[in-house]
Amino acid sequence: MTLFRLDASIRTHGSASREIADIVEQEWRVAHSGDSVVTRHIGVDTLPSTVWAAAVTAGMTPAQEQTAEQRDAVALAATLVDELIAADAILFAVPLYNYGVSQHFKTYLDVVLADPRATGVPFLAGKPVVLATVRGGAYGPGTPREGWDHSTPYLRRVIADCWGAELTLVEREFTLVGVNPALDAFTDEAAQLHAGALQAAREAGRALGALPVPA
């Protein structure tokens, strides 16, 4: 079996979303020792900001008239979709940035959707996907930032509703407690949320690893 893992954090060390994803991956590896894990880190190895426009306009341009940039963009979109289709399970680690979707992951989604195989069809129908997402503050009901998380609902809509994947969400809040002194009053609550997220990651990884091998 193959696990495809994508990280969108701009950090390579100390990343809260990466911590969760590492646990999910480790649990999956316990059940699939020796199997393949394909990785892509778009927060570090970023996709070009112009690639989506090039891929979209390529679809409106006769093949003989496409520029080298357009052909490269189409090829990249195909590669990204190939990675998702080829995987038996998928792990996305995507933090909330500035109340919205990471620009790196939004570019990734746009480029994927530029491929005809992923346009308007649930091309990941039934495929298990774990989304590890983290938020620096608290955004739940009754909090001052309730409704300010414009990333998680969007990701649910695309991954589960548009792509048709079987989505499991593992999330952690208050990751900036201990970093931002203004949040010091929430130290105990943050510790509980952290522990809960790590446990949820272990459970999600075990569930992912327990899925039957495709025939």
Rank of each mutant, 00 (worst) to 15 (best):
S102R: 06
P181D: 14
G147A: 12
A16R: 13
S49A: 14
T187F: 02
A204H: 08
A63S: 10
A210F: 03
G100H: 06
S15C: 10
V130D: 13
A197S: 07
V81T: 08
V51A: 05
I159A: 04
Y99N: 13
L80P: 10
I20E: 07
A86M: 07
P116L: 11
V134N: 11
R5F: 03
L47I: 12
L109G: 01
I85W: 10
D7F: 04
D188K: 14
I90A: 08
S49R: 10
A53S: 09
T12N: 15
V121L: 12
A190P: 04
F174L: 15
A75H: 14
I159M: 03
R202V: 08
W52G: 07
G209N: 04
E189F: 06
G209E: 03
S102C: 02
A21R: 04
L109Y: 06
V170W: 01
Q64C: 09
R29F: 00
V81D: 13
F123M: 11
I85S: 12
Q66L: 02
Q70T: 01
G126P: 05
Y97D: 12
D184V: 09
V38F: 01
L3A: 03
A58E: 05
E146M: 06
F174Y: 15
L131D: 05
A87V: 02
I85C: 09
G120N: 06
A215T: 10
L124D: 03
W163N: 06
V74P: 07
T168A: 05
A132R: 03
A31F: 01
L208Q: 02
A160L: 11
V74F: 12
A53P: 02
L113C: 07
H150I: 09
S9N: 01
V37P: 12
P128K: 14
P128F: 12
R202S: 03
G120M: 08
A191L: 04
I85G: 07
V177P: 01
R156P: 04
A165M: 11
E203N: 07
S102T: 15
P48G: 04
L6H: 03
H13R: 13
E171W: 10
F105E: 09
T143P: 08
L80V: 08
S36T: 13
P212N: 02
T152M: 11
N98M: 14
A68I: 11
G178E: 14
V170Q: 00
L208H: 02
F4R: 00
I90F: 11
D184I: 11
T50Q: 13
P141T: 12
I90H: 06
I90W: 05
T168K: 10
P122K: 01
A58K: 05
D35H: 07
A160M: 13
A195D: 14
L211H: 06
Y99W: 13
P122S: 00
H104V: 13
A58D: 03
A201E: 00
G205A: 03
S49F: 10
P48H: 05
F186V: 13
V44P: 04
L124H: 06
R145P: 09
A93P: 01
V101W: 05
A87L: 12
F186L: 14
Q199L: 15
R157F: 11
E189M: 15
A73E: 09
A89I: 00
L84Q: 12
S17A: 14
V177D: 06
E27L: 01
I42H: 08
Q103V: 12
D184P: 08
R156C: 10
A200H: 09
T175A: 08
V74H: 05
G43N: 02
I42R: 11
